[in-house]
Simulated assay, not measured.
Amino acid sequence: MSMGAAVILGNEPGSFPYSVLAERHPAIIEQVREAFPYGPEQHRALDALLDSCTKGVIEPLPGGAWAEWGIGGYLGQSWFDVPWLWSESHFYRRLLDAVGYFGDGPWHGIDPFRPSKLAELDSPETDQELTALDELAALPVEEQGAALVHGSLWGNRADLGFRLSDGAAEGRDAVPDLVVDDSERLRSLLDGVGTLCLIADNAGRELIPDLLLLAHLLEHGRVERAVLHVKPYPYYVSDATTADVVDALRRLVRAPGEAAGYGRRLWDAMADGRLRVRAHAFSCAPLPYADMPDDLRAEIGGAALTVLKGDLNYRRLVGDRWWAPTTLFADATAYFPGPVAALRTLKSDVVTGLDGRTEAALDEAEGRRWRTSGTHALIQVRP
Rank of each mutant, 00 (worst) to 15 (best):
L164E: 01
D81W: 08
D122G: 14
A119G: 07
T372N: 07
L49N: 08
L118K: 13
A365M: 04
Y314C: 02
R157I: 01
L312E: 06
I58A: 06
Y289I: 05
G4V: 12
L287P: 00
F329A: 12
L153D: 01
R278K: 13
T131S: 14
G356E: 14
W370S: 06
P112W: 02
W69C: 11
P383M: 12
L96H: 05
D363E: 12
I8F: 14
D182W: 02
G73F: 05
A168T: 04
H229R: 10
V227L: 11
V32S: 04
L136W: 07
P112L: 06
E143N: 15
Y314E: 02
L305M: 06
L198N: 05
L275E: 01
D311C: 07
F282M: 07
P112K: 05
G109S: 08
T195V: 14
L121G: 05
I110R: 13
Y18A: 15
V230F: 12
L249K: 09
E142D: 12
A48G: 05
F329L: 11
L96W: 02
L50R: 15
E364A: 14
V318M: 01
L346H: 11
L346N: 07
G204M: 02
W267S: 10
S78P: 08
L317I: 03
D294K: 15
A334I: 12
V237Q: 03
L46W: 01
G261F: 05
T345H: 09
L198E: 05
A365V: 06
L160N: 15
R278V: 14
G70D: 03
G151I: 00
D349S: 15
A332M: 02
W69V: 07
L49Y: 12
R274F: 01
S87I: 11
E59D: 07
S348V: 04
A5I: 01
D320W: 09
D320L: 08
V20Q: 03
R371Q: 09
D97L: 13
L189K: 11
V57G: 03
V149E: 00
D177E: 15
D272F: 12
G319H: 08
G263K: 04
A341S: 08
G105L: 09
G64H: 01
P339W: 15
A342K: 09
P209R: 14
Y235F: 15
L160K: 13
G261H: 05
L354P: 03
E366W: 11
D291G: 13
G105I: 02
L186C: 03
A260L: 10
S19N: 13
E59V: 09
K309H: 02
L196G: 00
G64D: 00
G105F: 08
E30T: 11
I110W: 09
L328H: 11
G63I: 07
S89V: 01
E219A: 13
P234C: 08
R382N: 15
T54D: 03
I29Q: 02
P37S: 14
E184N: 12
D272K: 11
V175S: 15
K309V: 00
D244G: 10
P140S: 07
L196H: 00
P83W: 09
R114T: 01
L153T: 05
H108Y: 12
W79V: 12
H220A: 07
P37A: 13
K55Q: 11
G151A: 07
R44P: 01
E364D: 14
S78N: 10
D239W: 09
T126L: 15
M292N: 08
S87V: 06
A6T: 05
